[in-house]
Write a protein that binds this DNA or RNA. Structure first.
Lengths: 152, 152
DNA sequence: CTTAAATAGTTGAAGGTTAAAATAATTAAA
DNA sequence: TTTAATTATTTTAACCTTCAACTATTTAAG
């Protein structure tokens, strides 16, 4: 294993947990990405389509909040989706600072085509764990994630 | 919640688990990164120093395996660490295709300065969960990670 | 030995990522 | 109202990331 026991019991436990979280995420993410690439999309592009498809049109800023990324980043991802003709920018009349992103017909059609396939793929990957284990893992991850969000 | 229940019970469970894994990782990673940035290092630079400090000098290829990244990537990260005078390339005589990366005195000194601080920081973040929960989470994450590694 | 295949690392192109600075528009304060 | 502060998005610079093509070296086959 990576972390040699050198920092005391509590710290070793925390470091070990963090290493395993990072590795599990990296491995799962890589497998998921293989599937996404087969649709000729990048991971962040896919996530944006997913948000728009499931929740409807929203502003750049809202997309940033959902995906936990910076504004500069989202500008580029939306640019690239727009080049592909999958989304379009709608300039709002009410508040002219905001821009709403919506799926084009092509984008909506793609969304509908690929998401059930993708869900099947995720299910298959997760089946490394039993349903009970998945539920327990989800519970702990949620506690960790939400607990951290409030941290300084 | 993000995933609206539309894909059947098993798929919803898997999707929900995957969303929580991604969020917990993103949040923990962001908090950890704040600490790393205070040492004027990027995350991959920090990881390379960690490997070299804990495990000793190794080739570019071995670093790639440890960090699960591509060769082209590691070339750049090592370039940037070399510019900072933290590591150096050692051209091997035995097999002239390989290059060993080792810490400079400056790099070793930095490693020794920052790792106990970083371990404390990770411990603090992880303390959102009890020790028992951390152990349980680590166990499930390990099973997921190693189980996936063998998947097609 | 000579050629072919495999291995280690670098390079270049295309995207993603952040932080900081710059624009533009809205809201609040004096 | 005029000015100041805030909000939404874009731009830029620096770094990370992968994949595919390329160089150099080593190993294996004939």
């Amino acid at each position: 294993m990576k972390t040699t026991k050198k920092y005391g019991k509590k710290q070793d436990l925390a470091l070990s947990m963090w290493v395993k979280l990072a590795r599990a995420y990296a491995t799962f993410s890589k497998k998921s990405l293989e599937n996404i690439r087969s649709f000729h999309l990048t991971e962040p592009q896919f996530s944006v389509l997913e948000s728009l498809g499931h929740l409807g049109s929203m502003t750049i800023g809202t997309l940033c909040t959902k995906q936990l990324v910076s504004g500069g980043n989202m500008t580029l991802v939306v640019d690239n989706l727009e080049k592909e003709g999958l989304v379009q920018r709608i300039y709002n009349k009410v508040d002219r600072r905001t821009i709403t992103i919506q799926l084009t017909p092509k984008g909506l059609s793609l969304f509908e085509d690929i998401f059930s396939q993708h869900a099947k793929h995720i299910e298959k990957l997760a089946s490394v764990l039993s349903e009970k284990e998945q539920a327990e893992l989800a519970k702990l991850l949620k506690k960790l994630g939400t607990g951290l969000s409030g941290t300084k």
